[in-house]
Design a binder for these strands. Structure first.
Lengths: 108, 108
DNA sequence: TGATCAAATCAACTTTATTTGATTTGATGG
DNA sequence: CCATCAAATCAAATAAAGTTGATTTGATCA
């Protein structure tokens, strides 16, 4: 296995893990409509700031979010190219899956 | 939020969580080529049978795998429609994302 | 029926993820 | 410089996920 493949695999793992939590899916749902700052997300999701910060970090480290500071505020938005990486992995899986006949267990 | 939306969200969470582990991605990689029984997967991945059983269960409960028993052997294969559910979620996100101008935090 | 083998399950344990409240950092504006 | 506020970080606690070796289940076949 090449280094490139390993890196790809890790970004898939991290991306999918980041998407495996209800609060994080809610964050994405909100950001899908528009860029928001942390205090907005706090208000809308009714969660503590430190909790939100933890989950935003998880999503950002997975490459799914981008953060830009504007004055005191930090605005988060979706990083769509990284979503596309995950989508492409799933699309490839589906399309390459040949539906070969199952092998028989005692074949070798 | 409707019950249907909640169910969808849970199946997304479970699906993405199931994909967030290196061994499970390896399992999928092998099954993408062909249906395999547990003993084959054990051989190829060089992991203990109970460990494999745990991860196969995780994938199966997320709807990503199907299992069929043939004699003493249980063959696992990909359940492609469930992969499509995840793929579609990502595709919708990407396509519906309007890239609206960011809101200003002090707007209200 | 009893031996055998594949696979699932279990209980105990280790590791990783998440939550919480408190503190720190860093930008802004008086 | 100091006060203020948004956001990040931290340490301590809880919760969830993963690993391990042993046992159980269930199908097959002599």
């Amino acid at each position: 296995m090449t280094v490139t493949l390993a890196i790809t695999s890790i970004s898939l793992e991290m991306g999918f893990k980041a998407l495996s939590d209800p609060l994080r899916l809610q964050i994405i749902d909100l950001l899908q409509e528009q860029e928001l700052c942390v205090c907005d997300l706090c208000d809308r999701l009714q969660v503590r700031q430190s909790k939100l910060s933890f989950h935003l970090k998880t999503l950002k480290e997975a490459g799914l979010l981008r953060a830009t500071q504007q004055g005191k505020w930090v605005y988060y938005s979706l990083n769509l190219p990284q979503f596309t990486v995950l989508e492409q992995y799933l699309a490839d899986l589906r399309q390459l899956s040949p539906m070969r006949p199952p092998r028989v267990c005692s074949e070798d």
